[in-house]
Amino acid sequence: MLSRVADSIYWLNRYVERAENIARFINANVNLILDSPTGVAQQWEPLVLTTGDLPVFQDRYGEATAENVIQFLTFDRDNANSIISCLRSARENARSIREIISSEMWEQVNTFYFMVQDAAEGQATFEPQHFFKEVKLASHLFAGVMDATMTHNEGWHFGQMGRFLERADKTARILDVKYFLLLPSVKDVGTTLDELQWMGLLRSASAYEMYRKCQHRITPTGVAEFLILDREFPRSIRFCLMQAERSLHQITGSSPGTWSSPAERSLGRLRSELDYLSIEEIVQMGLHECLNDLQQQIYGVGNNIFETFFALKPIS
């Protein structure tokens, strides 16, 4: 298939997934704040920090108030990573490959985009909780429609790969929010407030109930282990990388455990590292450091995919 087409379907899925995860970030924070004791300062800056856009934000908005941060991450068209910008990019990508994807997929992206645009125009009646839930649902609907209406061919696998790499990266960032979130004082570690924050974090990854089923007690290491290393939870980093790798091998046709391109090598290496990594090692390394490293490596995989499949140059 055309490199440009593969690139578009890959990014179409990344952007839809990104929009969903931004909604998850914000919603998680809204919930955390509601549970904080009154008098504790609201913490919105960590949100912009984890998306990596803090300098841009400070330049344009200054103080990290709830209103500013939500505006920046949701409706700011000049922020390439806001929900509305993600949807616009997703729609542009979909439009350029309309003859490749199913018309149901196109209709869903289109509807999704207009839903966000309508919300942006009617901000007076904006209800954050409701809106972010709608964004999550629309993203799930898109994934479901794609699964059920498009042939699971090469293009579909490029889409899957995009979605799961994006999700792996964002799960790492969601988990990292807790690192930046300050407790009122050191002695609050391990208190009810601390536990509430960890629960809020699980909820934002739709992981709370699934976590409870296999780990019961909520502990920081338990949560980290679940969101990084679980083999079966569909938003854990390891699960996402396994899925992405599966699609990658479907595309190249080479057998698992072998590699014929930098993309396969870097993704295979990262996935097998997670296969043998223990939570104790992660704690020893430092959770934040480990998450940082994972993000770097996922970024590297994305670059290798670009070089391998999309940036084809003729030999001159």
């Binding site: 055309l2 490199s3 440009r4 593969a6 595309i251 084809l312 003729p314």
Partner: peptide, 18 residues
């Protein structure tokens, strides 16, 4: 295809595929 999908190589017109 768009123009950026196509390239002249080895004396032929070719398209960039995966």
């Amino acid at each position: 295809v768009e123009g950026r999908d196509l390239v002249v190589a080895d004396g032929y017109l070719q398209m960039r595929t995966t």
